[in-house]
Design a protein around this nucleic acid. Structure first.
Ligand code: FES
Ligand code: FES
Lengths: 150, 150
DNA sequence: ATAATAAAGGATTAAAATATCTTTTATTAT
DNA sequence: ATAATAAAAGATATTTTAATCCTTTATTAT
């Protein structure tokens, strides 16, 4: 569905958003640790997200990644768009070159429905909403620690 | 979502099913042509589908691929299971190692819903139903021919 | 100014998915 | 029996995605 890079990206952004208000910025080392993602790879993803304005960053001592209020209020779909693009939400589920109602594949109606449900939920949900769930402890962006590992 | 191999596979099987009743069996050359999929790769996929009993085949002259009545009446999910496995329908949408209600990611409820809608439709829909749509001309397993190409 | 810090950028490697090519085996018609 | 046909099997190549490593640039504290 969505790429690994994009899943790491969403988790990272939600983590960052959940730290909104804290004075200290987060390094990619901290972020990758907190979302169980490979460090160097996460750095690349954060770089892309920064360039596209999803998150912000400052170099040097006391620098790091952080988010502004306006960034936190964005829809989650913006992250997906930046990393993977939105093609997946418009493509044919059976791989035809064009998904269209006028020349549909035999799964068209059903696939389109599921695809749109997902697009809809990514579009309507803000980063802030996800961050809130994480802050209140009802959901998580990192795996359960395995005793004796990590 | 589902792999390219799997999408080729579904189109190929639906095509084969749509030819149920015809005496002549279909070669992989014919099938790959009729579903716009790379020939050698399609051959591999058909091989896997044959081994798993989704479709049948006979070697040698007048041989080829074909389907039995019982095979046509299977659910489409069996094709997905054979080629990709069903993990995608149980995995976390944000890439956590475990998708669970007790330790959910912040998109869990919404993602699970879309995932299950799709699993459900793959499970309830039979190959026969898809083949029927193709036979009656209301849907298609091959791309619209581009004039002057192919 | 200098050293330390932290992200940005570029280059490279590794792994997985996609795709092709070649050889072998089974079947059939002659 | 022999040649032709078509899938099965195995090996190899290409492309894409994931991941790491090294160098550069910006910022800050001393
Ligand atoms: S044509 Fe296949 S999903 Fe629309
Ligand atoms: S935990 Fe992420 S989808 Fe269930």
């Amino acid at each position: 569905m969505i790429s690994k890079a994009c899943r790491y990206g969403i988790r990272a952004v939600v983590y960052l958003a959940s730290r909104y208000g804290e004075t200290a910025k987060s390094s990619f080392a901290e972020i990758s640790r907190e979302v169980d993602a490979p460090e160097a790879y996460t750095a690349k993803i954060l770089q892309i997200l920064t360039k596209s304005g999803i998150i912000s960053s400052i170099k040097g001592p006391n620098g790091g990644f952080y988010m502004e209020r306006l960034q936190i209020d964005q829809a989650v779909i913006n992250i997906v768009d930046t990393i993977d693009g939105l093609d997946v939400f418009y493509e044919c589920g059976l791989g035809l070159k064009q998904c269209s109602a006028s020349r549909p594949c035999p799964m068209h109606d059903q696939y389109k429905m599921a695809r749109e449900t997902l697009l809809d939920s990514f579009s309507r949900t803000t980063i802030e909403q996800l961050a809130r769930r994480v802050k209140e402890g009802s959901s998580f962006v990192r795996n359960l620690a395995i005793p004796g590992v990590g």
